[in-house]
């Protein structure tokens, strides 16, 4: 009559290289929680209590093994002054960046985690989730990485252009974004969450290996080094295609890499002995319209991932779509929980 482990226990073991029964099953259930809970996205993104309630409702429904505090990748940029547009049924979107002229960088102020933008929403949600379930479920706080925040401050295209035409200004912006991320991560930790850095714009779909190495990697490394002072395991999530930079991921110091459109075998052979992998069922497989069966698709991911030397978390490549088909997600989670280490 051996006891069943709870998610917190299973994650705890994974993080010290122990592989007792199976990997944690943690699809990135974020804004989809609002659909489960039945609230609109404006409240989900701007009210910590609702975000927390929705996360708990979704976790009760699906039984996945971690709570996710995430609204959008503009979070920190907004707290520093960029204007975002909140919408009822879609995630917030950048309306007007704060740095329209590079000369405005000098006036940029670091955010106050307790008061700027929607940062307090995150902290409140973390507090609530931690209080409710912190003993059995890890709480992950998704924090936009510096490269992505800088793009939100400057405007995405302008920032990408700056990396070539105004590299110094880009670095200045990145420094500030880094400081803001450190400040915010510190508070998330105090509230009880593990930071998960999200860097969708540092994707190999958007920037070259060189740009990644010069503008994204050093700041992610500094951020992660700071977080390592707390002996915390840090997850880095990069959307899209990452085959051109996968070997650099271990240089950021990330303990876990959440991968999207990258074959898990490639990730495994490149960094699998140093980095735990989190991934990577393509989110669109969870849509009702997707013709392929979950079984067919997750087969390769789970079978390969589970053999990763440094460990594996059964997850999705990116956020579970807001309007995913619940039965498909349930199916994936069930298959995930049936997986076993060899």
């Amino acid at each position: 009559m051996a006891g069943e482990m709870n998610p917190r226990e299973r994650w705890g073991l994974l993080l010290i290289d122990e592989f007792p029964d199976r990997p944690p099953v943690y699809p990135l259930v974020t804004s989809h929680a609002s659909a489960v809970y039945g609230c609109d996205l404006i409240s989900y993104c701007s009210d910590g209590k609702i975000l927390a309630e929705a996360q708990l409702a979704a976790q009760r429904k699906y039984g996945h093994e971690g709570l996710s505090v995430f609204t959008d990748v503009g979070l920190i940029a907004e707290a520093m002054g960029s204007k975002y547009h909140l919408r009822e049924f879609e995630v917030p979107i950048l309306n007007r960046p704060i740095i329209e002229e590079l000369s405005a960088i000098d006036k940029l102020k670091l955010p106050d985690p307790g008061g700027s933008g929607r940062l307090p929403v995150y902290l409140e949600a973390i507090e609530k989730l931690y209080q409710a379930k912190g003993d059995v479920l890890p709480v992950f706080a998704f924090v936009p990485a510096p490269f992505t925040t800088a793009a939100g401050l400057r405007g995405i295209e302008d920032f990408l252009v700056d990396t070539i035409t105004e590299p110094e200004a880009a670095h200045q912006l990145l420094e500030l974004s880094l400081e803001a991320a450190i400040k915010f991560c510190d508070e998330c930790i105090l509230c009880g969450a593990l930071p998960m850095l999200v860097d969708p714009l540092a994707s190999g779909s958007v920037i070259s290996r060189r740009t990644f190495a010069e503008f994204a990697l050093p700041y992610n490394r500094k951020l992660i080094t700071h977080l390592h002072r707390y002996d915390l395991d840090v997850t880095l999530h990069i959307c899209g295609e990452t085959s051109s930079i996968v070997d650099l991921i271990s240089d950021t110091g990330a303990d876990l890499f959440s991968l999207d459109k990258l074959d898990i075998d490639i990730a495994r052979s490149s960094i699998g002995d140093k980095v735990r992998l989190v991934g990577n069922l393509a989110p669109h497989n969870l849509m009702a319209s997707s013709g392929v069966s979950i079984e067919d698709n997750c087969h390769h991911i789970i079978d390969s991932g589970i053999r990763n030397k440094k460990g594996f978390v059964i997850s999705t490549g990116c956020e579970v779509p807001i309007r995913c088909q619940p039965e498909k997600l349930q199916k994936y989670i069930k298959l995930g929980k049936e997986a076993r280490y060899e």
Binding site: R8, G12, I16, Y130, Q131, G134, D135, V136, P138, I189, L190, G192, A193, L194, R229, Y230, D231, L232
Partner: peptide
């Protein structure tokens, strides 16, 4: 390389030790 242990209590809070708060 895993054997460091000088950390503030907040580290352990994150790993679920809620009383430390």
């Amino acid at each position: 390389e895993w054997s460091q242990y000088l950390f503030p209590p907040s580290t352990h809070v994150v790993s679920g030790n809620r009383l430390l708060r």
